[in-house]
């Protein structure tokens, strides 16, 4: 029940435990983990703007396993970089709004892990993998400053994801993301005439752009 305990610890206590070796999750573990994710989804939906996308369990389980293994790669420094491709496989399904939100149930912790890993070893191949994942799942990586263009089409097509993504950019005070043309109007609309009060740095940046 490695994955189940990992998810339970993550959701309920904010602490996680991982195995000392890379492993594959048992079927029973995946079934119980799915029950936890289902419950977590139902609770989390209440905090989402508008109506949250439906649950895509395949994406949710993939993301939970991905996060589990990522933590292992951060903690187990003896693991070889060549194992990354094998044990951190990319998501094979379509990144629909449902898949994005379902994966986000656990991938939302990715920015915190990114900062942790970067602090431990900036040159770690895992950091490059983090950026790659962040570009593929921008909804979960709103707090990570990204230099390359990201595909926001799936986010933009769903009002709940679009609003939540804007919320996260503002919450993280991510100026680089807020200035992108596809995000700027939403951030401006969210702050309204209170930008100077709610996010003074953004207000300064906008004034510079306008002037």
């Amino acid at each position: 029940m490695e994955l189940t305990e990992f998810i339970s610890g993550l959701i309920n206590e904010g602490n996680v435990t991982v195995a000392a070796d890379l492993l594959s999750f048992e079927e029973a573990d995946l079934r119980t983990a799915a029950i936890h994710l289902q419950q977590y989804y139902e609770d989390d939906c209440r905090e989402m703007p508008h109506t949250a996308p439906a649950l895509d369990m395949e994406a949710a389980l993939w993301a939970a396993g991905y996060l589990y293994t990522t933590v292992q790669f951060i903690l187990l420094r003896n693991l070889d970089a060549s194992l990354l491709d094998t044990h951190l496989p990319a998501y094979k399904g379509e990144r629909t709004p449902a898949a994005i939100y379902s994966a986000d149930l656990t991938l939302r912790y990715l920015p915190d892990l990114f900062l942790l890993a970067k602090g431990l070893s900036p040159a770690d191949p895992l950091i490059a993998r983090f950026y790659q994942t962040a570009h593929q799942w921008p909804f979960s990586a709103a707090a990570i400053p990204l230099t390359e263009q990201v595909d926001l089409s799936a986010i933009n097509e769903h009002p709940s994801l679009r609003q939540a993504y804007t919320d996260r950019i503002i919450q993280a005070r991510n100026l680089s993301q807020s200035r992108l043309p596809e995000n700027l109007p939403f951030v401006q609309a969210a702050l309204g005439s209170y930008a100077a009060q709610l996010w003074p740095q953004f207000d300064t940046v906008i004034n510079e752009i306008i002037l």
Partner: peptide, 9 residues
Amino acid sequence: YIAAAPQVR
């Protein structure tokens, strides 16, 4: 209102 409002508000 809260369904559509930005969290910052």
